[in-house]
């Protein structure tokens, strides 16, 4: 999948993060090639979300570096990373509740350092951007709700919009933080389907507790435990990995 001269979508080198003495992430290194779908799993408190936030830019690691398509983003702001086409979703939906689905996706689709400083023409006249919004709503199955207020949508539809927000950014990498959190089994099927249909050239990093979803979506899986990476491999390899079984089931089962 990766051409030899092309840098990895994401290169994490010896990243550590501690919160006043508590070591949340210990010297984690891994690489994600372009176009791969990578799942990040591990029990609660393994440091997945902390690592995730250092990649997204909401936390700065104490040590180590993060490269995004060959660019060092370790100390770049959240906004700068977004401008480099790094999209993310949140474990707890962070949507513009009082705005419509269309407005939400329009905002996500026209981000950037200068695009907001257009003061006169109404945003509703920008046809190219609105067409893109229409396309994204179709992709995430929200075309029926395009002019509904987000606060009136069900939790499941809001989770679909979360993914739409990341997708609308024309991202090169999408990071999904527990996309299925709080969804019913039937909603999970819709969401898994939606993630599987995302364009294949977009690299995907996924944190998820639901193993069915992980095994269904991921090309490779990275397992974290107590802030360190303990295993990495294809779903088949991880399924038969002794270390991973120990962590998930307790040593007496192995």
């Amino acid at each position: 999948m990766k051409k030899p001269d092309q840098p990895h979508a994401l290169t994490i080198t010896a990243v550590s993060k501690n919160f006043s003495g508590v070591q949340a992430v210990r010297s984690v290194s891994f690489e994600v090639p372009v176009g791969e779908r990578r799942a990040l799993i591990g029990p609660n408190g393994a440091g997945k979300t902390t690592l995730f936030n250092t990649i997204a830019g909401e936390l700065v690691p104490n040590e180590g570096s993060i490269h995004f398509f060959g660019i060092d983003i370790t100390r770049k702001s959240v906004q700068k990373r977004a401008n480099l086409d790094l999209g993310r979703t949140y474990q707890i939906s962070q949507l513009f509740l009082d705005l419509t689905v269309e407005e939400n996706l329009y905002l996500a689709g026209s981000g950037g350092a200068t695009k907001a400083f257009r003061f006169f023409g109404p945003w509703k006249n920008n046809k190219a951007e609105l067409d893109w919004v229409q396309e994204v709503t179709n992709q995430v199955g929200l075309h029926k709700y395009i002019s509904s207020k987000v606060s009136e949508l069900s939790h499941g539809l809001q989770r679909q919009l979360e993914i739409g927000m990341a997708l609308a950014m024309h991202p090169r990498l999408i990071m999904l933080d527990e996309p299925a959190a709080g969804l019913s089994p039937s909603e999970r099927i819709i969401l898994t389907d939606l993630i599987k249909k995302l364009p294949r050239d977009v690299t995907l990093i996924l944190i998820e507790h639901d193993m069915e979803i992980v095994l269904d979506i991921a090309d490779r899986i990275t397992v974290m435990y107590h802030g360190s990476v303990i295993a990495e491999g294809t779903p088949g390899e991880i399924r038969s990995n002794v270390e991973v079984k120990k962590v998930y089931l307790g040593s007496s089962y192995v």
Partner: peptide
Amino acid sequence: ENPRRMAAIG
């Protein structure tokens, strides 16, 4: 509505 999300979408 949400300054945090606004930063995250650039």
